[in-house]
């Protein structure tokens, strides 16, 4: 990759399945050290995109380049059920040779209070997710791809996993991409957003910038001039409207507010539904 600041770059990425495109014309760049939320409804192509980036699927067109080594945790956090925690660590050691940092792995397992002799199928969902994360982190990847890492977890486990992840980001500067369909999970954690819908990138960029560029306006779409209306609820001159601001808004200030991340994501997903329907 030419630009040293870019950790993941996708260009015209597409994957055709028998029933149509699972992913199409997908282009984006993620800067090194960023934490990106890959958001979309179920079946939007999130898993497909992550598997391609992890080298587990070959795209039908385009390419994705990642700088350095890639760690990947698949959806459902697959682990060998009959193995103990210690055996899973040994699995990591033998399948990664010199890429494996055993000291780090043992440190992470200790922090997660995972008993080394416990079998994987006796662990709780949260513990399993943490073990899967340990296996991915102990390879010291430059890019870490996590597919729905927080699903089916209680709030405490969710917080623990996010903390482990944030510590790793702070310590090693690893670039992280996590997919989710629950945006609120990642509020405050991610600094970049990649919004997929039905295999197409709807929105990509830095979270702060995206939030800055959008406004919720208590006015109908008829009153907003040149600004790009993403989603309007209500009539022509009343209701709430989410707009992408392209300059000064000619609306009284008290009618304008900044959207939340979740609001923004939902507006884009809904808008796309409306066009399709």
């Amino acid at each position: 990759m030419s630009d040293p600041g870019v950790a993941v770059r996708a260009e015209g990425l597409g994957l055709r399945r028998r029933r149509g495109w699972a992913l199409r014309d997908c282009s984006f760049e993620l800067p090194a050290g960023s934490v990106t939320a890959l958001v979309g409804a179920n079946g939007a192509g999130k898993s497909t995109l992550l598997k391609i980036a992890a080298g587990l699927l070959r795209p039908s067109e385009g390419a994705v380049a990642t700088r350095g080594s890639v760690g990947f945790v698949a959806q459902d956090k697959p682990l060998y059920r009959g193995f103990t925690v210690a055996e899973m660590l040994r699995f990591g050691r033998v399948t990664n040779a010199e890429d494996w940092d055993d000291t780090y792995a043992r440190q992470l397992v200790g922090e997660a209070a995972l008993p080394l002799s416990a079998k994987v199928n006796r662990l709780s969902g949260g513990e399993r997710a943490r073990l899967a994360l340990v296996l991915a982190l102990a390879r010291r990847p430059d890019v870490l791809l996590l597919d729905e890492p927080l699903s089916e977890m209680d709030p405490v486990a969710r917080e623990d996993v996010l903390r482990t992840l944030m510590v790793a980001v702070a310590e090693t500067g690893v670039t992280v991409v996590l997919s989710t369909h629950v945006v609120s999970d990642l509020d405050g954690v991610c600094d970049h957003l990649l919004l997929l819908d039905r295999g197409v990138v709807q929105l990509a960029g830095e979270v702060e910038e995206l939030l800055d560029n959008h406004r919720v306006v208590l006015a109908g779409r008829g009153d907003l001039g040149d600004h790009q209306v993403i989603l309007g609820r209500g009539g022509e001159h009343r209701g709430t409207t989410l707009v992408r601001v392209t300059g000064e808004l000619d609306v009284p200030e008290e009618l304008v507010s900044a959207p939340g991340l979740e609001e923004l994501v939902i507006a884009y997903l809904r808008a796309n539904r409306g066009v399709a329907a």
Binding site: G55, L56, Q75, P78, T95, R139
Partner: peptide, 10 residues
């Protein structure tokens, strides 16, 4: 799904 685990190692 453990093939995804094995194949994403080195």
């Amino acid at each position: 799904g453990t093939h995804l685990l094995a194949l994403s190692q080195s």
